[in-house]
Amino acid sequence: MELVAQLLDWFTAPAQWTGSSGIPVRVLEHVLYTVAATGVAVVVGLPIGLAVGHTGRGGTVAVNTTNVGRAIPSFGIIVLFFFIFGIDPVPAVIMLVALALPPIVTNTYVGVRSVAPAVTDSAAGMGLTGWQVLREVEIPAAMPLIMAGIRTSAVQVVATATLAAYIGLGGLGRYIFDGLSQQVLNQVVGGAILVALLALATELALGRVQRLVVPRGLQARSRQAALDAKLT
């Protein structure tokens, strides 16, 4: 109960909402890290996934290589980067990119590969060029899985971007690490709550985007599939 009251105090203190260490600025910093890392991961990962998916060659190599990103101990790496580069957001973002890449590459690859062979075959058979097959058929048909990959990545990045604060950078992690070192519990929990809320907001926002970019015919079907899955 006491913690709830303290949290309320922390959230409602006017100082909390202004200045360079106020919540709006910290959220903005956090969002910037996330957008930068997820953005780079999409720009790098999507073409890789599409290329290996479309050609059907190099899929295992691409997926396994990017999966190394999953295995990287984020915390250890960020500390290592700190000793090498000092307080620099670029290495931190690179670390986040490595984390964001695997779901995007894997999902894009799997999404393109799982377009029924009869569908791409009929497309080529009607005289679409390779590019046209990719653009008109494979990408739209793979869009639900591609978007799912981007959502997974973005949410993971939101959570992990907290670590940036450990090496002196900004973001919502500041509240957590500063609170821990100064033993201010409400600040730690407040920071954690903000990270969770931001992750949720990211998920919801990308859900909206997904509805915009996934072709309507596939949406109806994935909703139906979701319903069927619930029923069984």
Binding site: A118, M126, G217
Partner: peptide, 23 residues
């Protein structure tokens, strides 16, 4: 060229292969 050739030849493949994302 294959695209040119194929546009002049109607093709119904084994398994139909309609585009699921298109009306």
């Amino acid at each position: 060229s294959p695209p040119r050739l194929r546009r002049g030849i109607g093709y119904v493949i084994q398994g139909i292969g309609l585009f699921p994302h298109r009306t």
